[in-house]
Amino acid sequence: MRKVTVFFLISTFFLSGCWDQRLYKELSVISVVGIGGHIGELKAYYAYPSSGTDPIQYIVLEGEGKTAREVRIDANKKTEQTMDIAELTTILVSEETAKDDLYALLDVYYRSAQSPMTAKVMVTEGTSKRFLELKETIPKEIGEYYLDFVQSFEDATIFPKTNLEMTANLMFSEGRDLALPYLKTSSDKALPQAEGLALFNGKKYTGKYLTLRESTFATLLGYRKARIVELAYLWNKKGEKVSVAFDVIRFKKKKKVIQDGDNIKIQYKINMPIVMTEYPPDHLDRKQVRKELENFIERSVEKDINRMFKKSQEASSDILGIGEYIRAYHPQLWREGKWKDIYKDIKIEAKVNAEIVRSGSIR
C-alpha cells in the first residue's frame, strides 16, 4: 500500500496543468470588430460587454495604426484587461476599406489560433463605427445580435452561408467570387438593415451590390435553397394593382453552355413549384386564372434574374461560380484566356417554369 501511495505522489509531479487557461474575469471578451481606413492608416473598433449582469451594456475600444496587428496592440493598451477574440461573432468592414485587399485586413485573424473561423464578415455603408454605436436600440448582446441577424437572412435564402474560413477560400478561388452581406443604417441610433450582397472581384469590393431580391436569386442559383424562400410582387393587371406573394417549395436548376465560334451563351432552366401566400382576386381553382398568374410570376422572376446577371457581369464578379463549371466541364474555354475577360461578355439567360402546387393552407 505504501508503494502505491508513493507512486501516485511521484506521478503528480508529471501531470500537466492548465497552462493555457484564460479566465473571463481577466479578459475583455470581444464579440464584434469594426474595421475602417486603409493599410498604413487603419482604425478598428472592438466591442465587449461592460456589465456582468446586463449583456446589452458594452464598451467600444478604438485602435489606430499602420497594420491590423498594430491597431489591435494600440486598442489593447486602452483597456484594463487583455483583449480576447475567442468569442468573436462578427467582423464589420467599411465599404471604402473593403475596396482594398480584404485578405490583408483579415490575415491577422487567420493567423491567430484564438480566432473562431465561424465568425461572419459583413460590409457596411459608410464607417463601421456607426454600427457599433447602437446601445439604446439593440435588444441583446451586440455580438449575439449581429450573428442572429445575418443567420436569419441565411435561413431565408437571401444570403449564402459564409464565415471567416469560407471568405478566405473564395478570395483565392479562380472560378467563383466572394459576396458578403451589405448593411446600412439611416442614423447612428437606428437598427442596421440588410441591403443585399456586396460583390467582390478577387479580394476587393467592386463598389456594387445586389438588392435583397437579386441576392435571393444569386443564392438560389449559386448555392442552394435554405429553409424558406419568400417572394412578393405587384402585378399591374389591366390597370389594377394586384398583390402577388408566394413561397418557393423547391428550386431545381440546370445549366447548359452553348458555344458558337467566339460567342458563348449560358442557359439556365429553372423549375419552381410554389405555394401562393397572397393573391386577393382568388379563383385559383380555375385553370386559366392559374396559368395567367404563373406566366406573370415566370416573367417577373426571369427579369430579376437577368438584372442580377447584368450587375454581376458589370462588376466582373462571378458569384454564381460559373467559372467552376466551365473549368470542370469545358476546359477548352477555360484555357482560351482569362476567365474574367470571357465572363464579362458572355450571354447568360434564364428560363423559369413556375407551377402553383398549392393555393393556400387548405387547398
Rank of each mutant, 00 (worst) to 15 (best):
T97R: 02
Y233A: 04
N163H: 09
V108K: 10
N163M: 01
Y209T: 02
V121Y: 13
A218S: 14
L132S: 13
Y209E: 07
E195C: 01
G222S: 08
L134M: 13
E240R: 14
Y145L: 08
K140N: 03
R130G: 12
A194W: 01
D148P: 01
G222T: 07
I138R: 08
A104V: 08
A218H: 07
K161S: 03
L102M: 15
L210S: 04
V150H: 04
F149E: 04
R111D: 10
K203R: 09
K120M: 01
L180A: 05
E195T: 00
F131W: 01
Q151K: 14
V108C: 10
Y209L: 03
L134G: 00
E230P: 00
S173D: 15
Y182T: 04
E214L: 11
L197P: 04
I138V: 15
A218T: 08
Q193H: 02
L170G: 01
Y146Q: 14
G202T: 02
T137Y: 09
T157C: 03
E165A: 03
A232V: 00
S243T: 05
L183A: 03
K237E: 12
I158L: 04
F172P: 03
D101N: 15
E165L: 13
K203C: 00
A194I: 13
Q193S: 11
T162H: 05
D148Y: 06
T137S: 15
K161F: 02
K184L: 00
L234A: 10
Y205N: 09
T124R: 01
A218V: 07
D188E: 12
K99N: 07
Y182C: 07
L134D: 10
L106T: 01
F159I: 04
L191F: 02
V108E: 10
F172D: 09
G239E: 05
L220C: 06
K203M: 03
Y103W: 14
E174Q: 11
A226D: 11
G126A: 06
L220F: 04
L147T: 02
T137L: 05
L178N: 11
F159C: 04
T211V: 09
E133S: 15
L197T: 08
V229I: 12
R130E: 11
G207V: 05
D101I: 03
E144W: 04
Y145N: 05
P192W: 08
A232Y: 00
V150D: 02
Y110S: 07
K120L: 03
G222F: 09
F217L: 14
Y205C: 11
I142R: 05
Y146M: 10
R213C: 00
L180R: 06
N201M: 04
F217N: 12
L231K: 07
A198G: 13
E133L: 14
T118M: 12
T124V: 01
L170W: 02
F172K: 02
F131P: 00
W235K: 01
T211Q: 12
L105Q: 11
P192M: 09
T118D: 14
S112W: 10
K184C: 00
